[in-house]
Amino acid sequence: MPDTSMPPAVAPPVLEIRGLTKSFGTNIVLDGVSMQVGKGQTVCLLGPSGSGKSTLLRCVNWLEPPDQGRILLSGKLMGFRDGGVVPMNGMELARARSRIGMVFQHFNLWPHLTVLQNLIEAPIHVQGRQRDEVIGEAEVLLDRVGLADKKNAFPAHLSGGQKQRVGIARALAMRPELLLFDEPTSALDPELVGEVVAVMKILAEEGSTMLVVTHEMGFAREAADEVVLLDLGRVVEIARPTEFFTKPKTERARQFLQRYVHA
């Protein structure tokens, strides 16, 4: 495990999680998780279902406020005002959230807006950016995910893979410091997974900072800078993918790989 007590040498990591704890009722979902994502890094969160991966992601942008622990975004505390005692109010939380882009398992597009409107909605109305500038950027993004011709379509008319590519473009339109992916391919038909993974790989290569919860081992192996294995709410192993997939350090990781990769 990296030593989180060390002061950051140069710039702080984009995301730093320290001792994160979260339980629902008596069920402890996250039990003292610490990890970080450096600038330009792609980190994959792996683990069996129920290991707390999605909850961890949702704690990062405070969709689920954690019980204990700290989340730092480029060194700035999430969920609390400076000083770390007073919780943020709704406005402050919203402003902090708008620095993070999120891609959802079920796309969660806004059905009443066209593809282009989905992209520009939050940049204009949350970030208060210039409409023309945002539209220009959104069109470039749609082109990059291969959906320039769909900009005036409504989400209901798109395939799952297309919806998720819109979801990714929508997150990018926020110019986020950090991108969160919550099982972005789990709700897709198998033949549509490829097109979404391809877009994610390009983002990783171009140096986006990404935290990805996924079951796509191929993506983790090829695109991740680091892999974090979570089990029962605890970090089991943090390693480079080449090491993780060939010679895992822990017995738990070996079992996991046996079931999910070699099966």
């Binding site: 919203a94 597009l109 806004w110 109305h125």
Partner: peptide
């Protein structure tokens, strides 16, 4: 889910 996405993107109130 649409409301949750909006919250994550900084919409509130």
């Amino acid at each position: 889910d649409g409301i949750e996405a909006a919250t994550a993107f900084g919409f509130q109130g």
